[in-house]
Structures are given as C-alpha cells and as structure tokens.
Design a protein around this nucleic acid. Structure first.
Lengths: 315, 315
DNA sequence: GTGAAAGCGCTAACAT
DNA sequence: ATGTTAGCGCTTTCAC
C-alpha cells in the first residue's frame, strides 16, 4: 500500500481511505491512486486490515454436510446474498459430528468473523461457552422451537412432521411408516419423526420406524422399505426423511409392483428439482432453504412455521 | 496472548512457541501455559498470526456451483483431507460466471492463502495475470488435456465423451443424442459432447444435440427428450450431461412407454448414489471426484484418464 | 529453552 | 480532504 501511496504521491492513509470509502477522497487523487493500483497490480492484505480494524468480512457457516441438496442450496443462497453485502463465507461441515463442530467454531472464531451461522440447536457445552464469550451475531438455522443462543431462522421439524401426518390422515391413511436417514446423524429427521408419530397417534393410526445405517442411500432405502412392508403389510403410507430416500422407495415400489399411492403413498422432504418429474410426481415438503438467506438483510423472521405447510401435494 | 503469558508467568514469545511447536517448550512451562489458556478461554487471533508470518492456513477452492453433487462431493473430500493437514477451505462459487471467478480469485488472494484450487482451464485474462503474480501453488481440477497454470488434477472430458460413444457403438447404437445442461454454463459438458460427437462420427453414426436453457432441470430434460425423439425418431441412445438430466430422461421414457434400453438407451454422468436404484439401473460415468483429494498429499497425478473408463454399465 | 525487540501491512484516531 | 502517529496481536530473529 505504501508503494501505491508513493506512486500516487499521496499518503498511505489516503490510499486506505480510498479503498474503503472512495467518495471521501478527491477525484483527482482518487484517479491517481487507482492508476497506481492498476500499475502495480496491488492487492490489499486482508489480514493486515482485519488485524488493524479487529473485524473481518468473514461470516462462518457451519452445516452438517454440503452434499445434502438442501444445505448446499441454503449455502448458495446465503452466499449470493451476503456477497452483495461484502461478506465472505467460511464454510465448515461437521459431518454430523459435534466435536467437529466445536473445532470448527473455534477455528472460525479465531478469524474474528462478522457473524456465525450454525445449523440447529445441538451444540457441545464447550461450543456454547465459546459462543457466549464472543459478541458477534449468531444465527441458528434449519430449526425452530427452542430458545436459541442469539437469533433463530428456521422452521419446526416437529411441526413439519405433524403437518405431513395430518395431510396423510386427511387423505384416509392410518397405517404409516417413517423411512429415515440415521437419527444420530440427522437430528432434524428425528424431530420430523417425532412430530409425525405424535400426530398419527392422535389420529389413532400406527407408525413403523426404519432407519438407514449409512448416509442417504437410495438403494438401502429400497431394501428397508421392502422388508418393512414384509413385516407390516398393513402399511399404507411412508414419510421419508428426504427426497433421495423417497426416490429409492418409489423405485422399490415399482420393482415390487406396488402402485403409488394406491398400495403405498410416498412423501419426501426437500422438494428437490427432480421430484416434479417422478412417476407419479412426488409429494414432498419444501423447506424454506432459500428464504433463510434473508437474514443477511436483517430480516430474522423466526415465524417461518407456515413454510412447512408447503407440502407439495402431487401423488 | 500477553494475558496468557502473564498468568503463566512466561514471556509472550514462549506462549507463541508453545502454540506452534509445543515440544520445544519445557514441560513445566507448557503445563502452566495450557492451564492459563484454559482458564482464560484464550483463542488465538489468526489474522495477527497471519500478518506476522505472512502466510495463512487458508486454501481457496473455486467451483462453479456447490449444488452439483460432484462438486460438493469433491469439496467435502478435499476438506476432509486438507483439514487433517491443518488447512481451512475458503470456498467460492462462480455460478459459472468468469467475472465472478476473477472477483473471487482477487478476494481469496488477498487472504494470503497457502494455495488455490480452481475448476477447469477457463479463466479471464486478468485472473491469469493475478495468479501469475502470486507464487502460491495453484491447482486446476476437473479437467485435463491442456497446459495448466501450475498443477492439474482431473480427467479429459473429451476422452470421457469418446469413451461413452465407443461404449455405445460397441453395443450397436449408431443414432444418438446428447442431452445437456447449458454449454455456456457447463463448459465441461460441452467438452464431453465434442468427444462424444467425434467418436460417433468416426463410427459413422449421428448425434443430435439438445441443450437445456435453465440449470440442471429434470423436468426440462424430459420435455427436451420428447421433442427430440419427435424430430429424430431414429435416435437409439442418449448421453446426458449429468445424472439428474438422465433421471429426467428415464422418467420421460417411461411416460412415453419407451423401454430402456431397447427403445432408447440412456447414459448419465456423475454416478450419483441413486443411479444404482433406478429402473433399469442407470448406466453412468463415475468421475474421479473423490480421488482428486489426493492433491493434499502431494500426489498430483494428472494421469487420471483411465478413470473416465469407469463407465458403470448397468442398463 | 527462554525473553526482548522489531516488525508484518494495514486502520483509526487526531490534527491540519 | 489529507497527512501524521500509534497501535492491532501476533511471529521472528537474535541474544542469552
């Protein structure tokens, strides 16, 4: 920067000012500075700036995995919105591991981030105390219904489960199943299950639970479904923890000659692009992943409950 | 840090040394320092450290989008491997926009990263000159066959297209189509098309090209396929630019009563999890996304051509 | 093995 | 609107 200042024949602080608030520098000098910057190919040193101002334009985002389409879409939307506000995302993925989350929080915090976005409410005790010490804005996303550390943007998975259950009951289904990715990994799938189970129970129906052992695996979903129906032939409807699981279930139905939804109704979660093209079109739930990006504009609505109502009835 | 030093009754530089190379500090003091760190909940300031040492543990990774499963899987694998080596990923997504890439390169470079991973060979002139000035290791991934800026890890999409074509020709198909996400966005899909087209031409066959207008859209893929077959009923096989497009194509076939692969063979790209569960199981290409992570261990093999041979013949 | 001193490249008062 | 000055919290010599 001092080189730029020298070449432009101004003081370093004027260059600094120009870089941060260009309109507070006279146009004559601004021009000279810009020329010098271009000539030298000057790139500011963000770390020096961050140290001096003791802040950064980094916003940490911690998700369980970026390979789930709803998380990667959330990230992409978040990034798109925050970028225009001048922020950079530092993305961490925990792989559904709490100790990994703690480690990530620690390392992100050490960057003096402008904010931190976490997934869900479940954090280690140490993570919580780390976060308590920092005074940056913290957002917990993708869940709703508990008291958060700071701000909460999300929806209630329990309610989501209830709504799907009520939807199915309304259509005459009583004997149901929940086909899920592993609860230990996917805590929110468990919440949806609990809400689903409660509402089905309220309606006097039954719920059979089946958890996959691996990560979201379409093939395993098919196998589990087949065995589940063997054990519980009365099952009329299956709520799957995500669209990929539901896709696996749909293919298995076809393999077994079970018509959808007459023999077995299938409901997904995620509203992935392909769900509108399956045969029959898949009934699924659209989580408000794209709206969560609004937090960047200070609109931290926690009242997104209504969004889980967005059950795409298709089947 | 000075607080820690005071509490542990050592000098700040000893604390610094302890943090970086613990075994070079006497165990007595090490213990005192660790106690002080725990008591104070001390978190190092990465930016100060980075400024002083003029390096960082950041590795920038720029991909077109994190919502394509092969990129998000590459990212996850990269992250897993680099994390153990003490690095942090700063992920940027260009949304297939070259000017956006330049912007990202600029902003990542300003963090003094330890390295930079780019997707493909296509960079703006300015990006190239920016990168030339920096002396950090640069990796171009997900493509192969051109001279790179520094290191290259990937495979030839052109060859991939050829191999799929040869595979189809070997199975007796001559009249083919290429159903693709938009070439302007997905340059590598275009490369696969070119290789495919050349090899089909060599075999005396025909190729009809259809590009989607939006982003990977299963529904649009179905529509395009239908119209394409209307126009070219002689078509026997379709190579799709990714598995999602292929999924849309498969559903459309079923909708139209076209048996796979008798009426129409479908080949995908990506080897996504679900491809093994479709009816019939989808023939697809497994890109070496997970092996690209080996770059972290200094193994920058560019000879990954053989990997495109991993055509999962299933149909 | 440990500490003192000198920066790293900026920003943020403040004075002009 | 511009320049001067004093750090930001570390790392890195270099003595000891």
């Amino acid at each position: 920067m001092s080189e730029v200042a020298q070449l432009a024949d101004v003081s370093p602080s004027t260059v600094s000012l120009y870089l941060r608030r260009p309109d507070e520098v006279s146009s004559r000098r601004a021009e000279r500075i810009q020329t010098a910057i271009d000539r030298l190919g000057y790139l500011p040193n963000t770390m020096a700036g961050g140290l001096a101002s003791s802040r950064s334009n980094i916003i940490g985002v911690i998700v369980p995995t970026i390979t789930f389409s709803f998380f990667s879409e959330t990230l992409e939307t978040l990034e798109k919105n925050l970028r225009t506000a001048g922020y950079q995302l530092l993305i961490g993925n925990t792989e559904f591991d709490a100790s990994r989350e703690e480690e990530l929080i620690r390392s992100i915090l050490s960057w003096n981030p402008a904010g931190l976005v976490l997934t869900g409410f479940s954090h280690s005790r140490k993570s919580v105390s780390l976060l308590a010490k920092s005074d940056i804005p913290i957002i917990e996303m993708w869940d709703y219904g508990q008291e958060g550390l700071d701000m909460v943007v999300g929806f209630s998975h329990h309610t989501c489960g209830r709504l799907v259950a009520e939807h199915l009951v309304r259509h005459g289904y009583r004997h149901t199943a929940f086909l899920s990715t592993n609860f230990q990994r996917d805590i929110r799938a468990r919440e949806r299950y609990l809400g689903f189970r409660d509402a089905i129970a309220d309606a006097g129906g039954s719920v059979v639970l089946r958890e996959l052992t691996g990560r979201s695996n379409t093939a395993e979903a098919g196998d589990l479904l087949r065995h589940m129906v063997d054990d519980h032939p009365e099952t009329q409807a299956v709520f799957c923890s995500n669209d990929m699981v539901a896709l696996g279930a749909m293919f298995e139905c076809r393999r077994q000659g079970w018509s959808i939804p007459e023999r077995l109704a299938i409901v997904g979660f995620g509203n992935q692009d392909f769900t509108g093209s399956t045969i029959p079109p898949m009934t699924t739930v659209e989580p408000p992943g794209k709206r969560s990006a609004n937090i960047s504009r200070g609109c931290c609505s926690t009242d997104s409950r209504e969004m889980t109502r967005q059950i795409r009835q298709r089947g």
